[in-house]
Design a protein around this nucleic acid. Sequence first.
DNA 1: ATTTAGAATTAGAATGATTCTAACTGCATT
DNA 2: AATGCAGTTAGAATCATTCTAATTCTAAAT
Lengths: 151, 151
Amino acid sequence: MPPSSTRSPAKASGLDCRLAVLGADVRLTPHRREVFDVLAASTDHPTAYDILERVKSRSPHISLATVYNCLEHLTSHGLIKLVHLERGQSRYCANLHEHVHFHCETCGKVIDAHPAADFDPAAFWNLPKGTKVTHTDLAIHGTCSTCAAKS
Amino acid sequence: MPPSSTRSPAKASGLDCRLAVLGADVRLTPHRREVFDVLAASTDHPTAYDILERVKSRSPHISLATVYNCLEHLTSHGLIKLVHLERGQSRYCANLHEHVHFHCETCGKVIDAHPAADFDPAAFWNLPKGTKVTHTDLAIHGTCSTCAAKS
DNA sequence: ATTTAGAATTAGAATGATTCTAACTGCATT
DNA sequence: AATGCAGTTAGAATCATTCTAATTCTAAAT
């Protein structure tokens, strides 16, 4: 599918607001928008393959390579986040708010958790003077309440 | 190389202390011990391949498969930790103290950082009631002081 | 001392996720 | 119409890891 819209289009959406806030020069093709929309509508931190399957309902001929390209583009422009919880597939997340990931080792589910108060992990741990922090990535592994109740 | 020692051997070492504390039933073959020793002597969170290269000086014929087997054995018995900082290779760490990892995005260096005070991340983030936490994994990404000074 | 069973080790094949490559397509400008 | 360029594509290539089947060694049983 070729690009049919160039810069941020006029249609209003969460994505457009996000673009406006970032002020980024993000060229949004239909595929990139679809990939973003699928991810924004997902709460399960899908993998690239999951996203491919979901985008296919709208664009049956999209390829996995294109999904990877779109995800890379969106990630590098700060529109989505890449999450590594375990070895194997990377997962993606459209929640840009400060949050951490809880990963259930029993059912594999991933849930976002938000801090109870402001907290600066970089300051909390004794990092050497002069260290610059760009982002932190906290994964909490365990058993979710549903799985814990079953056992 | 076949196993020549069965249970924890008599020779005293950090590893043996660790074994005693864990009370684990860990069968230590020479290769497993070498892999552990190499990791314990490293502060750079080596990958499986790094470890292979270092163990080779003592056991020139060891294979990567054996290194993976040893690492898996040591990890599953709680003697070492597996760290995923980015996509690609897994890294290993013999520091079992509560700590987080700082990853320099410029030079790739990984340094351990220890908390300034007691802190329970699981309690801090609003996890649903009934959630059980087995371990947390905090990665802080940024630029280390050395790289920051250069730019 | 031999046999047997079981675990460790090995090389190499297989797998799985991601990235690369080269060709193709269509919009936008010349 | 021609050109250039970014996006897209299929398929190949790569890379880390895991699997498989054969081999080797240890320890227990005979």
